[in-house]
Simulated scan of single mutants.
Amino acid sequence: MSERLEDIAVAMVANGKGILAADESSGTIKKRFDVIGVESTADSRRDYREMMFRTKEAMTKYISGVILYDETIRQNAADGTPLVELIKASGAIPGIKVDAGAKGIVNFPGDTITEGLDGLRERLAEYYKLGARFAKWRGVIDIDTTRSVPSAYSIAANTHALARYAALCQEAGIVPIVEPEVLMDGAHDIDTCYDVTKATLVKLYDELYAARVKLEGTILKPNMVISGKKAARQASAEEIAEKTIKLFRETVPA
């Protein structure tokens, strides 16, 4: 397979295929195992992932890439084959989650900033050697109109971090999935979501451009323009589709 960033990015969005998110933290997957009465151990987590990666027809036909967690990218299958090799054998591309989660921003109640830039250059070099060819970083933008959330500072800080992450990924030969997620929690209407998402995407592409990130070698993982879960009026599927596509045409470089 080609190692060019733009070729990897195109392969990740192949028609009829999607990306499998197998990047739950050990804490998150334990909660899921608890529901079905399975003990969460390194072996049980490995067996769960291996079961998915060995479903040959599904992996080959429908999966273009797999996002892994730090533990998983280092694990071997029960027979000793690295899990990364199972993914590659199916024709899918191994990827890795690299952010360290969202933390509250000092002096800005309700706003968060995603952490994980410290040491990222070295981690990406290691992940590349382990087989990762794309990465994921999620910036979280909440909406709470009663508290003026998000602040302009929060949008600026998160998009700047996304751009720094993206540049480091490309330096390492890894395609960055850039995810500035405007959350659908809250009571805001669809127009508020539109305005916040637009402000976020405009700032994001300013930052990516300033950081000299090669856009052809990136993947944008956006949110839909949608009413908040607690909104009195829920927009129809047609309105969501119309406003989401309109927004992308206005903000995302062709």
Rank of each mutant, 00 (worst) to 15 (best):
S2A: 13
E3K: 13
R4H: 13
R4P: 01
G27R: 03
I29G: 00
F33I: 11
D34Q: 13
E39S: 09
S40G: 04
T41P: 02
T41F: 01
T55A: 15
E57S: 15
M59R: 00
T60H: 11
Y62E: 11
I67P: 04
Y69W: 13
D70F: 02
I73H: 05
V84P: 02
E85S: 12
G91I: 07
I96D: 02
D99L: 06
A100E: 15
N107K: 12
D111Y: 04
D111P: 04
G119Q: 08
R121H: 12
Y127H: 12
L130C: 10
G131T: 09
G131M: 11
F134Y: 14
K136A: 10
R138E: 07
D142F: 15
I143E: 08
D144P: 09
T145S: 11
S148C: 08
V149F: 03
P150K: 07
A152C: 07
A152I: 09
N158L: 11
T159N: 03
H160W: 11
A161L: 03
L168F: 10
L168T: 06
E171G: 06
A172T: 04
P176W: 01
E179Q: 09
G186C: 10
H188W: 06
C193Y: 08
T197A: 13
D206N: 15
L208C: 05
Y209V: 13
R212E: 15
R212Q: 15
K214M: 11
K221Y: 09
K221R: 10
N223H: 03
V225E: 09
S227G: 07
G228Q: 00
R233G: 00
R233I: 12
S236F: 02
T244Q: 10
I245A: 14
K246N: 12
K246L: 13
K246E: 14
E250D: 14
A254S: 14
